[in-house]
Design a protein around this nucleic acid. Structure first.
Length: 155
DNA sequence: GCCAACGTTGGC
DNA sequence: GCCAACGTTGGC
């Protein structure tokens, strides 16, 4: 899952008193469908910093809720307000994610590109813009290996 | 700041 | 249903 560190860095998630945050405000159907249909409680999340210098994976999080309606779509004062989303039939769905741990060092996008074992990973594809992307088990393990991550693993 | 790659919108 | 125009994303 991607976030711009100028908006919501991984350190903010780590600092949440509840240890988690609502991943609301997503207004893309593919990303919504993944949160609604594919993501399950306990799934691991690579937290990626986009629009950063350099961009890359900053740490690990996990899915802590099933998908549920995005209330920000119903609030006219919210920047993500969508008048077409009806509370009776919500258009936008999101999950909550909880922090696990930061990596010692950010794993730069370039390092992902340079690793032949990550060939085909969605985030390195040119023009890849989805804010929520699938990660295979092999990709997950490889990124954790690159990070030298020794802590709790979701797999 | 540039621009390629997308997604969305709306006229027809 | 097509597609041009437009807006956004995000690496560089």
């Amino acid at each position: 899952m991607k976030s711009e560190p100028d908006v919501y860095p991984f350190s903010d998630l780590m600092a949440e008193p509840s240890g988690k945050t609502m991943w609301d405000g997503v207004r893309n159907y593919q990303a919504r469908n993944m949160m609604r249909d594919d993501m399950k409680v306990g799934d691991g999340v690579l937290f990626y910093h986009s629009n950063a210098k350099p961009p890359g994976v900053r740490g690990l999080a996990e899915v802590v809720t099933e998908g549920y309606p995005d209330a920000s779509a119903f609030d006219p004062n919210d920047s993500h307000f969508d008048p077409k989303s009806d509370p009776e039939n919500p258009r936008w769905i999101h999950v909550d994610i909880g922090a696990i741990a930061p990596f010692d060092e950010l794993i730069p996008l370039q390092a992902l590109k340079d690793n032949p074992r990550l060939e085909g990973m969605e985030v390195i594809r040119k023009g890849s813009r989805l804010s929520v992307q699938p990660v295979s088990k092999a990709e997950w393990r490889e990124v954790l290996k690159m990070a030298g991550y020794k802590g709790k693993d979701k797999l």
